[in-house]
């Protein structure tokens, strides 16, 4: 049982997909115009992630290694189609708000990443909790982003108007709140980039501060959080380095041929 909790902690805090691993950026930026949309997208992804982890973990000994990625994609795509039907039937307003980003859950790198790195190697129960942890971590990331953008951009939280002219807060506090002029750009496309940039910068700042303390006190490199600093970009960097290496190799080869 402790392993399951460890998985939850890992997904929500230690390897939070939004803030630490920087995975699944497309839905993160696109649908977080309000808190409700962010939570809806996060929970939809969580549902798909938990189900796909369970199914892939059950089938892990049956799926041949050579065709595992196409097999994972078919499983995830079927689950997403089912989810789409459910949303259309029971939550049509959310379905309209999220639009094509529901279908695009298929190409969310979190889901394939978890299938590949965890569910295809571990038993069913830990895999389910791994999916739940990662999904909740993603939901929390999206909710944060959505809440910030909604309050700055339209002065509301979860459709309750807190700031601005139509504030629901009464009395003298309400009078102060009513002077707020919503900054519309935060619910538009550019605002998504700015809010995420600031949230990541705050997180970097915390890490930098914590890093100093750790470095000063005992010099235990294993517990040092400074090493995490380069972590968010790591997978991307690796891919890019590979690309660059290959390009360079090819250039060298071309030169040889020219000679």
């Amino acid at each position: 049982m402790s392993k399951c909790f460890e998985r939850l902690y890992n997904g929500i805090i230690k390897e939070n997909p939004t803030f630490v691993l920087m995975l699944g950026m497309c839905p993160t930026l696109a649908v977080t115009t309000s808190l409700i949309n962010g939570v809806g997208m996060g929970l939809s992804t969580t549902a798909v992630l938990v189900m796909s982890n369970i199914i892939i973990s059950m089938l892990r000994k049956i799926i041949p290694n050579g065709v595992r990625v196409p097999a994972f994609i078919v499983i995830v795509a079927s689950l997403v189609t089912i989810l789409q039907f459910m949303l259309e039937a029971y939550l049509p307003s959310l379905n309209d708000a999220l639009g094509i980003y529901i279908s695009l859950i298929v190409v969310n790198c979190i889901i394939l990443g978890r299938a590949e790195s965890y569910a295809s190697k571990n038993p069913v129960l830990p895999s389910a909790f791994d999916g739940l942890g990662m999904g909740l971590g993603f939901t929390i990331g999206l909710s944060f982003l959505g809440a910030f953008r909604e309050i700055l951009g339209s002065g509301a939280i979860a459709n309750v108007q807190l700031l601005g002219k139509d504030t629901v807060v009464s009395g003298s506090v309400g009078k102060i709140f009513s002077h707020y002029e919503p900054i519309t750009i935060f619910v538009m496309a550019p605002g998504a980039f700015f809010v995420l940039a600031c949230l990541v910068a705050v997180q970097n700042k915390i890490k930098l501060n914590a890093g100093k303390k750790v470095a000063e006190c005992d010099g235990n490199c294993m517990a040092c959080s400074v090493s995490c600093e380069s972590k968010p970009e790591e997978p991307v960097k690796k891919a890019e380095e590979k690309v660059e290496e290959k390009v360079e190799e090819k250039k060298v080869e071309e030169k040889k041929e020219d000679k």
Binding site: P190, F193, A197, C198, V200, N204, E233
Partner: peptide, 22 residues
């Protein structure tokens, strides 16, 4: 600034580009 190094400054740049494209 140190806390904006890496991803945050790239995101800010992308935001400014998005404003330009509007």
């Amino acid at each position: 600034p140190p806390s904006f190094k890496g991803m945050p400054i790239v995101l800010v740049t992308a935001g400014l580009m998005a404003i330009a494209f509007t």
